[in-house]
Design a protein around this nucleic acid. Sequence first.
DNA 1: ATTTTTAGCTAACGATCGTTAGTTTTACAT
DNA 2: ATGTAAAACTAACGATCGTTAGCTAAAAAT
Lengths: 196, 196
Amino acid sequence: MAKIRGKKNSTKKEVIIEKASKLFREKGFGAASMRDLAVHVGVEAASLYNHIQSKSEILQAICFRVANEFISHLDTVQASRESSLKKMEMIIRFHIRMMMDQYEYVYISDHEWRHLPEPYLSNFLNQRRNYRKILAELIGEGIVKDEIKPIEPYVAVLTILSAISGIESWQRSRKHISADVLENNMVKYLIEGLKK
Amino acid sequence: MAKIRGKKNSTKKEVIIEKASKLFREKGFGAASMRDLAVHVGVEAASLYNHIQSKSEILQAICFRVANEFISHLDTVQASRESSLKKMEMIIRFHIRMMMDQYEYVYISDHEWRHLPEPYLSNFLNQRRNYRKILAELIGEGIVKDEIKPIEPYVAVLTILSAISGIESWQRSRKHISADVLENNMVKYLIEGLKK
DNA sequence: ATTTTTAGCTAACGATCGTTAGTTTTACAT
DNA sequence: ATGTAAAACTAACGATCGTTAGCTAAAAAT
């Protein structure tokens, strides 16, 4: 039997993950209950288990989906023949846009990964560490090529990624500032701080 | 009767709060249990309630203690006769040092405030909003006085505060980079990005 | 030395948690 | 129309949660 499909051609599992992502962000993974989630899906709690294996499987799906998107975009950027500075701008803009378009998913991947069970936790942290290492190397190359001012690459990576993840608190008060203004001002700030 | 005092002239309530801050950071407020906490304090879970009223009282103590420290430092800075840019540097350095010296407390104040019960939650968010507003106004003044490059003040505040809160992931791998290098590089990055 | 207060203990409460078992309903395939 | 498999339901499990009650031991005040 074909999977039942809701709106947007998504499977019910996908609906569960989507609703869960909102709930996990609002209450945190630990405080969000399966019964809570069931209400939002419009079903009894036990019925969720016809589509998923466990609560933490949902968290795994979210965290690794986000990680894969960032890693595969990084591969694309690396394959391009742009300057190091331009590459960094591409990556920064991608992060900002991900934070806006897939806010719930990115937020959870950023804040709730602690609750991943092993061996997924180690796996996730390895991917994260590797991603940041590549970014630091990219900045290092930019410094050597005199495109980027001398700065500790690891600190720069930390500063950039953290700054972007702070868009979370903009999400709660969208009214005052538009997405475009936010993106361009943040890129301006972060890239100007890098430029030689 | 005088309160019993442990090491460092701190009351037992203070010891509980200190141990709780480590636990809340490691596991999250929701996932950290009172029985967990009791083990770290060296006491039965029920005995904790001779010193505190509830689990969330601990969270309140931590969140508002941190908030008060930042607010009172901001008052000091505002009372000084420095340039807007210099004031921002003072504030940035204070945030970075707080993140290093009182890591556990600041982290919890940053990440676990969601679990505050009302009316403390609203109270906390009001203080936070107000603090950021003052910072944005400070940057606005700097722009008018031509000390700071034209940038959306709110975005700058967001970028700065978020960047600093990212020091959390440095805390887990202190070995590679010293505190001084981190502070100076981060200040360099964030202040250069502001300078006209 | 006696009284009073503080702080620890054991035991248990009601609630809620993630999850499983067993059954019934729904919906597609033939 | 009938068979079959997916997906819903009800009920309940064992565990763990924050917290309270009642009691005992320790320590300070008198």
